[in-house]
């Protein structure tokens, strides 16, 4: 039974990773940049929800919506101020800027809200008892899995059916050609950041509901793990982020249960290195040979 319960914990953790990884993978696919600040947007989202429910007593749904709105605005703002001027710059410069933004958010949060760890009030509580109480699933876990599925389906439909989604795919394939076809590349990239950041807000609330601690550095490690998930699944691929996230959640939970809690991160990152060694394009990514 503990095996099954580990699997469930893993899948629910993995669902959260998958939602975060979707943000990474979409931004990477279209802007070809590693958005280091993504993890910290998660933290901002969680803080928004924390203040809305804890301090102002808003109902959970409203505070989640508030977090989503704030994070979306933040994502567009970051993209416009920090990344847009660097469209033509070498990738090293973009990466360093992204790290700068990540640090800015972390330290800004620390100055504004303090460095101490806060206790997050979960948006849903309680758990479902199965098999005569031998298997417990918390409602947060179920909510995380449901959210992940909904997000996946919506995103898949969005990118394959809508005009904006098609524009996104076109931009990620070839920006120049997309521009010639009359697609506004800049607004498409902004839109991608907006969607990614909105997802980050959802993931932040879910993560802090499942593991109710919150501090300015809450987002950074899950952000890196989710990036690992995105690379694992094949960066740039939406189903890949889903698959990578779930697998990574399971691997992490099993590492915690059967190896050592202290070493779980080491195991996760070792997975990343092995994946990059054996299959650099990830599980579902496609290998694109470089043309000269």
């Amino acid at each position: 039974m503990s095996f099954l319960s580990n699997i469930l914990t893993g899948v629910s953790l993995g669902s959260i990773y998958a939602i975060i990884a979707l943000g990474y993978t979409m931004v990477y696919g279209i802007a070809k940049m590693l958005n280091f600040a993504h993890g910290d947007v998660i933290m901002v989202g969680a803080f928004m929800c924390f203040f809305a429910t804890g301090r102002y007593g808003l109902p959970p749904l409203v505070s989640v919506l508030l977090a989503v709105v704030v994070c979306t605005a933040l994502g567009i703002l970051i993209e416009g101020l920090a990344y847009k001027p660097l469209r033509e710059a070498p990738s090293l410069a973009v990466l360093i800027t992204a790290i700068g933004v990540s640090y800015l958010l972390q330290n800004g949060a620390q100055l504004l809200w303090g460095a101490d760890t806060k206790t997050f009030t979960p948006i849903v509580s309680g758990s479902l008892s199965l098999v005569e109480g031998r298997l417990n699933i918390s409602y947060v876990s179920l909510l995380a899995m449901a959210c992940c599925l909904v997000v996946m389906v919506c995103l898949t439909l969005f990118t394959s059916r809508t005009r904006m989604g098609k524009a996104m795919r076109a931009c990620s394939e070839d920006k120049g050609a997309a521009q010639l076809m009359g697609i506004n590349v800049n607004s498409t990239i902004s839109m991608t950041f907006a969607i990614g950041s909105a997802l980050a807000a959802v993931a932040g609330v879910l993560m802090c509901s499942a593991y109710p601690v919150l501090s300015p550095t809450t987002g950074s490690l899950p952000g890196i793990r989710a990036f690992t998930a995105a690379v694992f699944g094949g960066i740039g691929s939406i189903p890949g982020a889903f698959l990578g996230g779930i697998l990574l959640g399971i691997i992490e939970t099993f590492a915690k249960a059967y190896i050592s809690t202290d070493l779980s991160d080491a195991v996760v990152f070792a997975v990343l290195i092995i994946v990059l060694l054996v299959k650099p394009a990830g599980l579902l990514g496609k290998y694109v040979p470089e043309k000269v």
């Binding site: 700068g100 800004g108 100055l111």
Partner: peptide
């Protein structure tokens, strides 16, 4: 925070 701003 100052470092981050300068970096960007």
């Amino acid at each position: 925070l100052i470092y981050a701003v300068i970096l960007i």
